[in-house]
Design a protein around this nucleic acid. Structure first.
Length: 153
DNA sequence: GCCAACGTTGGC
DNA sequence: GCCAACGTTGGC
């Protein structure tokens, strides 16, 4: 899951009550569909986008499965969408809980150089989705990488 | 700040 | 249903 650290960082998630927050504001159908596939207990790679150094910063966990994103019904919300209604919700969100911050974040540039991540949707050219699937192998490769970052090439 | 890539909108 | 115009994303 991507977030702009200036708006909502992994530290911000950690500072929330119960270290938990709803992943609101997703207004893309594909990203929404990926969220609806998420299950309680699924682990999340937390990625900081649109900042000086884009990085995977840590891990969160899904603690509530998809439910209607009520910010879409709030006229004063930045994410207001008149097409969504309480009786027929258009947008959904999950709740995620902070789990871990990497001692050393894994930069996008490092991920690009890892052959195991060649197929990772995050690295696909022109991708703009804020929520994307990660395979177990990709997840393990990223989380292992932060321990091995000082190994010679 | 630039710009490529992509999704959405809306006229036809 | 096509597609040009537009807005947004996000790396660089």
């Amino acid at each position: 899951m991507k977030s702009e650290p200036a708006l909502f960082s992994l530290d911000d998630l950690r500072a929330m009550p119960k270290r938990t927050a709803p992943w609101d504001g997703v207004r893309n159908y594909q990203a929404r569909n990926y969220m609806r596939e998420m299950r309680t207990g699924d682990l999340v790679l937390f990625y900081h986008s649109n900042c000086k150094q884009p990085v995977a910063v840590g891990i969160a966990k899904v603690v509530r499965e998809a439910y209607p994103d009520y910010t879409a019904w709030n006229r004063t919300s930045d994410h207001f969408d008149p097409a969504s209604h309480p009786e027929a919700p258009l947008w959904f969100m999950v709740d995620v809980r902070w789990k871990q911050a990497f001692a050393e974040p894994v930069p996008l540039s490092a991920m690009k150089s890892m052959p195991q991540l060649k197929e990772m949707p995050l690295l696909r050219r022109g991708n703009r989705l804020s929520v994307m699937p990660v395979t177990r192998e990709q997840f393990d490769a990223v989380t292992a990488r932060r321990k091995n970052r000082c190994l010679p090439k």
